[in-house]
């Protein structure tokens, strides 16, 4: 059984709130929609737990450490650009559009 089937929930409303949790976390909802979600979260343990774990997932992604650039990549890139600057290189087509 999923949360949408629980008798204490209005399944359609619960699903609707669940569908907008990311927008809520990103502050992309208007004030009325925010209030509606907050009201729902006060009464729905499952959505509240989901919202907290979702927020944590986003925070963990944002906190991911960056990998260092391999030395060989910088050297290879510099050589390739140097060739282009001297009119000696070619570019495989992948322009802006």
């Amino acid at each position: 059984m999923s949360i949408a089937d629980r008798p204490e929930h209005d399944p359609a409303h619960c699903r609707e709130m669940f569908a907008h949790l990311s927008e809520y976390l990103d502050r992309e909802l208007d004030e009325t929609a925010c209030r509606e979600i907050e009201q729902h979260l006060r009464h729905c343990d499952a959505c509240r737990a989901c919202c907290a774990t979702l927020a944590r997932t986003v925070a963990l992604c944002r906190g991911m450490p960056a990998h260092a650039v391999p030395e060989t990549m910088s050297t290879r890139l510099r050589e390739a650009i140097e060739k282009l600057r001297s009119g000696d290189g070619t570019v495989s087509g992948a322009g802006p559009d």
């Binding site: 999923s2 949360i3 949408a4 629980r6 343990d45 499952a46 774990t53 927020a55």
Partner: peptide
């Protein structure tokens, strides 16, 4: 729908990792 919380999680508290 595949991500809607299942029955076993409904009574659960917000987990420690959050």
């Amino acid at each position: 729908d595949e991500f809607l919380p299942g029955d076993e999680q409904i009574a659960a508290e917000t987990p420690a990792w959050a």
